[in-house]
Design a protein around this nucleic acid. Structure first.
Lengths: 259, 259
DNA sequence: CGGCACCACTCATTGGTACAAGTCGCCCCG
DNA sequence: CGGGGCGACTTGTACCAATGAGTGGTGCCG
């Protein structure tokens, strides 16, 4: 066997998509059509079985190239990306809120931002949280979380973790948004932020994430762990999970040339 | 229908893996065994069809949780991650080479680094390259590329693009490694690097990348575009493609607390 | 003329079968 | 005792069939 039939079909379809022969949004031929269309691979006038065609489509879906909608058809996926400049957020001088920062950044790129489902709760710290905040596992932490949307599409989830001893007596314990922002609120209580470390990984989404972010098959997520520090140590851990197909993170390091 | 059978099977297997009931490296029950094992989902004493079981396994493979090897079995995937501190590389003071930086960073984490397949060629600039180097599409660029391995496993590919006018007359045109490093070589020719911008995206690998990096199904890649600047403008674009399941990028922004 | 029912088409799920191909160990034969 | 062959077991590929379920348009009926 030279190469599996379904791989040949997938490769040919992939080629057509990458060459722009089928542009984003285009509907692919239906499965029965593809059966006869690629029948020549096994013989003149022959047809492929439906399973073989579906295996090929599964490959492309897992690559995030196409998206199947039951009852409608299969379409070339189209996604626009939003760039997050992650290196100059949370400037010491700014009095703007986190919300404002997000709204401003998105609006500049000509999109419509939204923040949803703001929640505050108290949880026991998981291992990856405890390690970064330098507390013990299962120590209580304050969690403030939300979802973000761009142009009505789910884009990212955010969870911020604060050590209990820092949060007590501050507005961080309030179950609503803070007008002047959490960074400023912590500063007012003697925990001025001096910097942060971002750790970035990519992986396939969990089931829950796929639902919340409305990710199709074959779309990975970008996960960012931001540990913020005061001079005394960690004051916050923020975990952002971004839809991988519509997010670009940017960091400016050192000096940038004048434009 | 409550939920598709194959999804129920996948969910249950996923749960067992995540709970650590099956640790990394463990062999999963074979397909025929799973058919009977989960037969109870459709009725007492019943069996699932092999297709259903295989669909469930495909889900887990696409999530990067397990890895099937023909003739052997299906195994819980095990991967260790390597962290790249991307924010303090290429310091102006260091005389170290790029190679040394990689080797040192990996060795510190107790692993064995390798660099392979060094190549130099001249190509026409693709759009994404031309935009960042601020040259015209199809302008010639010097490309220097390599693969990197950790503990004998492919880990990342790197391609560095230099504008033709900067590279001519420098060692960048030589088809071999530069002892003092490319940053230093450019500085000697009047193009001192003052900073860079990193852009990070994640996506599913192309077929070629999956082969070169030996990625199993369901493993995404992290792609980093690093545009380096002198005071006059862009002097280099480096594109790194990392195996997503074994890479963590880190950026330190602002001050870090003293340890 | 408006709304609803139905049909035609799409992909989704599940069942079955057969054979190919890779891996490994056992057993027999030299 | 050593080595090769064979067989058992694994996943991979390919086919067929039937039914479920979502979408959209057409046309009939009130």
């Amino acid at each position: 066997m030279a190469e599996a039939l379904y791989r040949q079909v997938a490769s040919d379809l992939r080629l057509k998509i990458n060459k722009g022969e089928w542009s984003p949004g285009t509907q692919l031929p239906s499965e029965p059509v593809l059966e006869t269309l690629y029948g020549y691979l096994v013989g003149k006038g022959a047809r492929l079985s439906r399973n073989t065609v579906r295996l090929a489509m599964a490959v492309l879906q897992n690559e995030g190239l196409v998206e199947a909608r039951q009852g409608r058809g299969t379409f070339v996926r189209e996604r626009v990306t939003f760039t997050v400049l992650a290196s100059n957020e949370e400037g010491a001088s700014s009095g703007r809120t986190d919300r404002d920062a997000f709204v401003a950044a998105v609006s500049v790129q000509g999109r419509h931002p939204e923040q949803l489902e703001f929640r505050m709760e108290i949880r026991k710290a998981a291992l990856e949280v405890a390690e970064r905040l330098r507390i013990d596992e299962d120590d209580p932490v304050v969690v403030r979380s939300m979802h973000r949307l761009i142009d009505g599409r789910p884009w990212s989830t955010q969870e911020s973790f604060y050590p209990m001893d820092l949060a007590t007596g501050t507005m961080l314990m309030s179950p609503s948004d803070i007008a002047h922002g959490t960074v400023e609120e912590l500063r007012r209580h003697g925990h001025a932020q001096i910097g942060y470390r971002d750790e970035i990984v990519c992986r396939m989404p969990s089931q829950g994430e796929a639902v919340v972010l409305r990710l199709g098959a074959g779309v990975p997520v970008l996960e960012m762990f931001r540990t913020a520090y005061s001079v005394a140590g960690p004051i916050r851990l923020t975990i952002n999970v971004y839809a991988g197909d519509s997010t670009r993170l940017a960091y400016d390091i050192g000096s940038q040339p004048v434009e």
